[in-house]
Design a protein around this nucleic acid. Structure first.
Length: 350
DNA sequence: CAGCAAATAT
DNA sequence: AATATTTGCT
C-alpha cells in the first residue's frame, strides 16, 4: 500500500490477450485526461469536502453546453416517445434527508494515505477524479485516436462492463413493473430508465436474467429470496405476480404494489442515492438482504457507504483508484483487480 | 428487434 | 466464482 497510482501502461488493443486474468492495468482512462491537480480544484473549491459530505451536496460535474445539449437531445428523444405521464422533473437530489447518511463520508480528494479502513472504521480515502460523463461513452475512450482517428471508434468501442448496482437495478425493476410484462421490452425499458450510457444490450441481458430469476422464484416457493441471485434477490417484485410473497415466513419482500414512481432517482427511495451505473470491474454485488428490500432506506447493515464513499459525486463520474477494499450493502468486500471503473450518471440531471 | 441459450469475457 | 456481455439462432 505504499504505492500510489502508478498507472501508465495501457493496452491499446482490446484484444484481451491477458488470458491469465491476472491484472491487466488498463489505465487508458487516465490517459489524455487532465491531471488530477487540474481537476480537483474545480469541484473542491466550491464546497469544502466536509460540508459537502455533511450535507450530501456534491459538486456538479461541469458539462459543456455541448454535452448538455447532446444529452438533452437523447433524453428528449426518449421521453418524447412515450414518457407522457411521467414527471421527469429532476432537480439535483442533493438531499438525502432520510438521514441514512450515517456514513461519515469524507471527501478526501487527494488523501489516500492508505487510510483504507476495512472494518467499517469509517474513513474512506480516495482520490477524486472527475471526468465528463457524457464524454466517456465516446470520446474518452478514443484516446487511442492516434491509430484510429476514425469516428467509428466513437461508438464502436466496447464499453466497460456495466455493473448493475442495486440502485440501477431498482430502477430497472421499477420500470419493468411499471410497464408491465407486455411492454417490458429492452428497448422500452432502456428508454424509460433513461439512464445515460445504458444500451439496449445491457438491458436485454439484464432483463433476461431477471426473468429467469423471477421464474425460479415462482417455481420454488411463494417466497424465500434465497441468496442465490444476489442481484435480484433484494428487489421488490413487480406486482405481476400470482402470489409473489404472500407474506409468509421468510421476511416477505414487502412488495407493496409499487406503481413505480418512475424514472430516475429518489433520494429517499433506494437507500439514499440515485442510480449510478457503474462501469468497471469493481462493482459491489447486490444486497441479498434476503427478506429485506432495500426499497425503504434501511439497507445499512454495517455501515454502508454510499458508493463506497466514492460517490462523491453526484457528478456521476468517479473513478476508483487502484485497489480499494469496499463493502457493499451486505458486507461483502471486494477488491482484487486494479482497474478503473467508471460511473455514469443517469440523465435525470440536466 | 425481442427472446433464449450457450459461450465467452472480466 | 459470480456477473455481464456477446453470439447464434428463431
Amino acid at each position: 500500500m505504499g504505492e500510489e497510482v502508478k498507472m501508465s501502461e495501457y493496452e491499446i488493443n482490446d484484444g484481451e490477450d491477458n488470458i491469465n486474468g491476472d491484472d491487466e492495468r488498463v489505465a487508458v482512462w487516465e490517459i489524455g485526461l487532465p491531471t488530477p491537480d487540474d481537476l480537483t480544484p474545480l469541484s473542491q473549491a466550491l464546497i469544502p469536502p466536509e460540508l459537502a459530505s455533511a450535507f450530501s451536496i456534491f459538486p456538479e460535474p461541469h458539462r459543456t453546453p455541448l454535452d448538455v445539449n447532446r444529452a438533452s437531445q437523447t433524453t428528449l428523444s426518449n421521453l418524447r416517445g412515450q414518457l407522457n405521464a411521467l414527471s421527469s422533473i429532476n432537480f439535483k437530489s442533493f438531499n438525502e434527508t432520510t438521514g441514512q447518511t450515517h456514513d461519515p463520508i469524507e471527501v478526501d480528494l487527494d488523501n489516500k494515505t492508505g487510510a483504507v479502513d476495512r472494518d467499517g472504521s469509517g474513513s474512506e480515502a480516495r482520490k477524486l477524479r472527475r471526468i465528463d460523463s457524457e464524454e466517456e461513452d465516446s470520446a474518452l475512450r478514443t484516446e487511442n485516436s492516434a491509430e484510429d482517428p476514425s469516428s467509428a471508434a466513437a461508438r464502436s468501442l466496447k464499453r466497460p462492463r456495466l455493473v448493475w448496482t442495486p440502485q440501477l437495478h431498482k430502477r430497472f425493476v421499477d420500470v419493468v413493473g411499471h410497464l408491465g410484462i407486455k411492454n417490458a421490452v429492452p428497448k422500452t425499458i432502456m428508454q424509460l430508465m433513461n439512464v445515460e450510457g445504458l444500451t439496449r444490450e445491457n438491458v436485454a441481458s439484464h432483463l433476461q436474467k431477471y426473468r429467469l430469476y423471477l421464474k425460479r422464484m415462482q417455481g420454488l416457493s411463494s417466497e424465500g429470496p434465497s441468496a442465490s441471485d444476489q442481484l435480484f434477490a433484494s428487489t421488490p417484485l413487480p406486482q405481476s405476480f400470482p402470489e409473489s410473497s404472500g407474506g409468509g415466513g421468510g421476511g416477505g419482500n414487502g412488495n407493496f404494489g409499487i406503481p413505480i414512481p418512475m424514472p430516475y432517482h429518489h433520494p429517499a427511495t433506494a437507500g439514499g442515492m440515485m442510480p449510478m451505473p457503474v462501469y468497471g470491474h469493481m462493482g459491489m454485488q447486490m444486497g441479498n438482504n434476503n427478506g429485506h428490500n432495500n426499497n425503504s432506506s434501511d439497507n445499512h447493515q454495517h455501515h454502508q457507504v454510499s458508493i463506497n464513499g466514492h460517490q462523491n459525486g453526484y457528478n456521476g463520474n468517479v473513478v476508483h483508484d487502484h485497489m480499494f477494499q469496499q463493502r457493499d450493502w451486505n458486507g461483502n468486500h471486494y477488491g482484487s483487480y486494479t482497474h478503473h471503473p467508471h460511473q455514469v450518471a443517469p440523465n435525470d440531471n440536466m
